[in-house]
């Protein structure tokens, strides 16, 4: 199993790091290696302790919850029987499962597609320095600073079918009121729109900094060659941004899969299951009801982790192929 960041940096640095492996002979090299290993792990100790202390337990606990048949009584007093994958089977056969799976995929991919495309377009736009561009770019990041409970509530007022400003605006365009949050065919679209809005700043920051790092000489050379802006983007900017794009998409995906607050505040996953994703479903099972169902809730949460894991492996795979 190879790791993400090392493959990643190998791909971006080419073979510049070879100096470390400079040939040295026999024993000297081995002892240097051992001391280097020890030093490396000394530097890694804080992180390792941290990971074991703060990640291992929650993860173990969630796994345990999902593999036993917990009632509220056994949750408190222990002694829940081990039931293997029964919770997973139950969850997979639940009528909500297919709906939640499709919604999770749609939510994640549509959000990512738009966040990334818009983020990229804006990054390219702001990279051409013009008056006020630094301040405007900074302003674009403001949505990021708002607590999610505030931005999600604001979106739900804006999209309210009766008093919302969006329908008020559409009315002037001669379009009748849309039941953004309450119609089964629109509610998923509404939460996606809000999520795209929230995700644009993150994409803009990462991609813009990537563009900044492209040596100016390259695009100047292209300009001399007579390349237009589109050709320049397609031939230079985009290919050179590939590693940055990969991180951005990877992180974006991890964060989008987990999104729960926005959907919960705006629609509670409803009406019925129209905007339910794995994240909101897991929350609803574990917390959104008077009687918590910890086992199935944890099972859904773990399915989410597995989905992200698969995506992570695919990412590493792609990285490695690019590096090779």
């Amino acid at each position: 199993m190879n790791n993400g960041s090392q493959t990643l940096d190998r791909s971006v640095r080419g073979r510049a790091g070879a100096a470390n492996d400079a040939p040295a002979s026999g024993r000297a090299r081995r002892s240097r290696n051992r001391s280097s290993q020890l030093a490396a792990w000394a530097f890694l100790t804080p992180l390792t302790v941290y990971l074991l202390a703060f990640y291992a337990y929650p993860l173990y606990r969630n796994l345990d919850l999902s593999l036993r048949d917990y009632t509220v009584y056994s949750f408190v007093h222990g002694g829940a029987p081990f039931t293997g994958f029964a919770n997973y089977t139950a969850v997979i056969h639940d009528p909500t499962f297919v709906k939640a799976l499709v919604n999770t995929l749609l939510f994640t991919f549509i959000s990512l597609l738009f966040q990334f495309t818009i983020g990229m377009a804006l990054a390219v736009f702001f990279a051409q320095h013009f008056p006020l561009s630094p301040i405007l770019r900074a302003l674009f990041l403001v949505p990021w600073l708002l607590p999610l409970i505030v931005s999600a509530s604001t979106w739900s007022w804006m999209l309210d079918s009766g008093s919302g400003v969006v329908n008020y605006g559409l009315h002037f365009l001669g379009i009748g009121p849309v039941n953004w949050l309450t119609s089964p065919s629109w509610s998923l679209a509404s939460v996606i729109i809000a999520n795209i809005w929230i995700g644009i700043p993150f994409n803009l920051v990462l991609l813009y900094s990537g563009i900044q790092a492209i040596p100016a000489t390259l695009s100047e050379a292209a300009a001399i060659d007579g390349a237009g802006p589109w050709t320049k983007f397609r031939r230079i900017t985009f290919p050179l941004l590939r590693p940055v794009s990969a991180i951005t998409l990877m992180l974006g995906m991890v964060y989008t899969l987990k999104v729960f607050d926005i959907i919960w505040i705006m629609t509670k996953g409803g009406p019925v299951d129209a905007s339910t994703t794995f994240a909101t479903w897991s929350y609803r099972l574990g917390f959104g009801n008077l009687l918590p169902e910890f086992g199935p809730g944890a099972a859904v949460g773990n399915l989410l982790v597995v989905m992200a894991l698969i995506a992570g492996l695919v990412y590493i795979r792609v990285q490695r192929r690019q590096a090779a």
């Binding site: 002892s31 240097r32 001391s35 020890l38 030093a39 792990w41 000394a42 530097f43 890694l44 100790t45 804080p46 302790v49 941290y50 202390a53």
Partner: peptide, 21 residues
């Protein structure tokens, strides 16, 4: 030199550990 550098590195790690502890 190597052992020296190792000790320093170890010291850094231990300092962080001590913090947690």
């Amino acid at each position: 030199m190597h052992t020296d550098s190792f000790r320093r590195a170890l010291g850094a790690g231990l300092a962080a550990l001590a913090l947690t502890a």
